[in-house]
Amino acid sequence: MPPSPSAETRPLVVKLGGSLAASPALRRWLAALRLYPGPLAIVPGGGPFADAVRSAQEALRFSDAAAHDMAIMAMEQYGRALCDLEPGLRPAATLREAEAAHAQGAIAVWSPVAMTRANPQIPASWDMTSDSLAAWYAHEAGARALLLVKSVDWRASPPPPRGGRSSAEGDREGVTSRVSGSTPPRTAPRSDPPPEGEGEGAASIVDPCFARYARGLDVFIAGPAALREAEETLARGGLPGARFDFTREQSIAS
């Protein structure tokens, strides 16, 4: 059996929210991530490519299974765009390809189609977004930590009242509902919850599956406020943002 990777060689996994696609903050985050001194892998959200899938499903009424598959492909499209925007990013469909990118001093950008298709246990459900996929990948890669980069700052709020919106509504990125015949809402959901005061019951910034998939990881969530010190923090091997509270968020998402 090969030895377990040391803390220095275990990668940091960063989920880069698709909602950043149209934001000037995207380039700043990419530049900051390049300063991280250890191996780093980016899990892309779905961004505008996933939004296109939702709009197309509403118009064409193709199946949820097809929409889920297309939404995973949307993550790959966003990842390909990121690799074109920033030197030093390399697409990686497998753990071996990610390790090869790290060996060359590059950041691996996960292309999730191959690995997710090979694992039928991953649910095609609104309850599992690219945040949970990032946590799943982090475990597969033996990561030391997971950083979720969002377009909003995280402030946990009380759970919604019974009968209200689900805690993950507004965080639908990269997955679709398994319920037969269902279609996306007319207003495409965002990869991050609305800012405080916009919408009702936006209680959690992660999906209901996240706490289960992320258990055992050191998880941080970073929004715009964390970007101010992100370069300095990442350059010294630290993680910007706020540490994720599994106990509190599990109760919110349940």
Rank of each mutant, 00 (worst) to 15 (best):
R228S: 10
A214L: 02
W126S: 14
P24M: 06
W136Y: 12
P11I: 02
Y213R: 12
R34K: 09
A143D: 00
A253D: 10
P91F: 04
R215I: 00
T233S: 06
V43A: 15
L40A: 01
S19L: 11
V109I: 10
S177D: 15
E200H: 15
P39K: 00
F246T: 02
R190W: 03
R61G: 02
A168F: 15
P208T: 07
F49A: 06
V175S: 14
A41T: 09
A143G: 02
R190L: 04
P24L: 05
V113C: 09
P3I: 01
S180L: 15
H68S: 09
G223T: 13
A235R: 15
S177Y: 13
E169N: 09
V53H: 08
A103M: 00
G241S: 14
P87N: 10
L234K: 07
S251K: 10
D171Y: 08
L26D: 04
N119L: 12
A100E: 10
M115E: 07
Y213F: 14
E169F: 14
R80D: 03
G181S: 01
R117H: 13
R96T: 04
E249G: 03
G197L: 11
S151D: 15
A74C: 07
D127I: 05
L85A: 05
P185Y: 08
P37L: 13
A22C: 13
V206N: 04
V14K: 13
V113H: 08
M1R: 12
R80N: 05
R162T: 10
G238Y: 04
A145Y: 10
G237L: 06
L26F: 03
L146M: 06
P123F: 07
L239Y: 09
T94G: 09
E8Q: 12
S177C: 15
A98S: 02
H68G: 08
Q57K: 06
T183I: 08
G38A: 12
G216L: 08
G201I: 03
G197N: 07
R96Y: 00
V14Q: 09
A50H: 15
A135I: 10
I72W: 09
P193Y: 12
R172M: 06
P2R: 05
L82C: 03
R248C: 07
A106T: 11
P224W: 10
A31G: 01
D207H: 04
L16A: 04
